[in-house]
């Protein structure tokens, strides 16, 4: 099924400039892999070479961080929205 994926500003140019796009997938992992296939410029930006989530991005299913759900195995439905945002961190250390 087709799922809406909302992209952060930084990744939009690699996906044609739009703030969101739709790809097929039944899990968050399938959606993110389909996103990379549809927009090869996004390869390596969200998933690592091993197919895991990069630590410097956060991926959400609707309102929830997928790290607190079933990560990439989290199931998605047609009305769900997958959002990607950068992890924002730093500090004096």
């Amino acid at each position: 099924m087709s799922v809406e994926v909302r992209l952060p500003t930084l990744l939009r140019p690699a996906a044609g400039g739009a703030p969101s796009t739709s790809v097929e997938g039944a899990t968050v992992g399938e959606v993110l892999r389909a996103l990379e296939v549809a927009h090869p410029g996004l390869a390596g930006q969200v998933l690592t070479a091993d197919g895991e989530l990069h630590k410097f991005v956060n991926v959400y299913l609707n309102d929830d961080d997928v790290r607190y759900l079933d990560r990439l195995d989290t199931k998605v439905g047609a009305d769900d929205v997958v959002s990607i945002l950068p992890a924002v961190a730093g500090g004096a250390a």
Binding site: N58, Y60, D63, D64, D65, S83, L85, A87, V88, A89, G90, G91, A92, A93
Partner: peptide, 13 residues
């Protein structure tokens, strides 16, 4: 932490 920060991901969303 007094020397690191991480913005709460849900609050960012």
């Amino acid at each position: 932490s007094s020397c690191l920060y991480t913005v709460d991901p849900r609050e960012y969303l």
